[in-house]
């Protein structure tokens, strides 16, 4: 049994100008201890996917139209708020993009970590404090015991993200969802945080779902990758395979945007055009209008994900040809 499986999930948002399908028929699996990267442009549905796992979609504007999320055999979609609360934290932890605003400015970091533990019924105050120190040490905050009384404004961005991770890990989740964990950080700090995620997986054996638009982050940490475009998964494969043999034209285009050291190009390639409006997506492949390999058949129907190998699948009718 997988730790997490998302099955044919479709989520729609109601807006004043009509209904917008944020994600459509998304299926993902995550095994214990595995790191899955979800990559795509802004608006491709990565964050909505993450939020719908946790039941954090902004209701009533957003709604799960069909499909379900199963975590350790329990169906999360449609589960009551009370039961979900017991899974959030000890079952699934989450860290967010903005370390600057993800900590409450008026409480010390120690109070914030122990607060999470208290929310999950740890009544013993010294025990909570010990656990907070342990977690801060684990995420690499030096002299953790002395820093419990520090306030968020006294920490750097990287340290705050470490504290965020410590908070998410305090309840020992089996799955950590990291939504753009390094986007707001500078490059060296990014590397430190990514190493930390890898170490923690090693030590705690938890699974991680990393959401990012950065192919470099994927290459660094992920075991497996799912590429999202316009609310759908267009390609899924182990990370080495994806970088070696990208099958979907969108994946290739994404990889073409990444500069490498042995590159003698003067300009990086950009993908022409923009994501289609989620209210008026094309009838066929959503990437077709921007695709260099487009043929007429592309616009006829939405191409389904087709296996290209035992672990590799892509949603493009031209993958066999190209």
């Amino acid at each position: 049994m997988s730790l997490l499986s998302i099955e044919h999930l479709t989520v729609a948002f109601r807006s004043e100008t009509g209904q917008a399908t944020a994600i459509e028929d998304v299926s993902l699996r995550l095994e214990p201890g595995e790191i899955l990267g979800v990559v795509g442009e802004s608006g491709s549905g990565k964050s909505v996917t993450a939020l719908s796992i946790m039941g954090l979609l902004p209701e009533p504007a957003a709604r799960v139209v069909s499909g379900r999320v199963v975590f350790e055999g329990q169906v999360l979609t449609g589960m009551g708020e009370h039961r979900l609360r017991r899974i959030r934290g000890p079952g699934i932890g989450m860290i967010f993009q903005e370390p600057m605003t993800s900590l409450n400015p008026i409480f010390s970091i120690g109070e914030q970590i122990t607060e999470t533990l208290a929310a999950h019924g740890e009544r013993d105050r010294p025990k909570r404090r010990d656990r907070a120190v342990e977690m801060l040490e684990r995420v690499g905050i030096a002299s953790a015991a002395r820093r419990l009384g520090d306030y968020p404004h006294q920490l750097s961005g990287g340290q705050r993200q470490r504290v965020m991770i410590a908070m998410a890990l305090a309840c020992r989740p089996r799955l950590l969802i990291a939504d753009e964990p390094t986007t707001a950080l500078d490059v060296t700090t990014q590397a430190g945080i990514l190493d930390l995620v890898l170490d923690l997986r090693e030590q705690l054996g938890m699974a991680v779902l990393v959401i990012t638009h950065n192919m470099g982050v994927i290459a660094e940490v992920a075991d497996r990758v799912a590429v999202m475009y316009a609310g759908r998964i267009v390609e899924q494969s182990p990370v080495e395979l994806l970088f070696a043999e990208p099958a979907h034209p969108y994946t290739r285009a994404l990889l073409g945007c990444v500069p490498t050291l042995d590159d003698d190009r003067v300009r990086l390639t950009a993908i022409p055009g923009a994501l289609p409006d989620p209210r008026t997506r094309p009838a066929g492949c959503a990437f077709a209008p921007r695709c260099g390999l487009r043929v007429d058949a592309c616009e006829a129907a939405i191409p389904p994900l087709r296996p290209l190998g035992p672990t590799h699948e892509a949603a493009c009718i031209r993958t066999c040809a190209g």
Binding site: M54, L56, R85, R86, I87, R88, G89, P90, G93, M94, I95, F96, Q97, E98, T101, S102, L103, N104, P105, I106, F107, Q112, E115, T116, A119, H120, M164, M167, A168, C171
Partner: peptide
């Protein structure tokens, strides 16, 4: 605020969030 969302994601209930994150701020 993101710290409210983070608290929800950590499994805190409404009363706790109001008491610790919203009202003090």
């Amino acid at each position: 605020m993101e710290y409210v969302q983070a608290a929800v994601a950590a499994g805190a209930g409404h009363a706790r969030i109001l008491r610790t994150h919203v009202i003090p701020n």
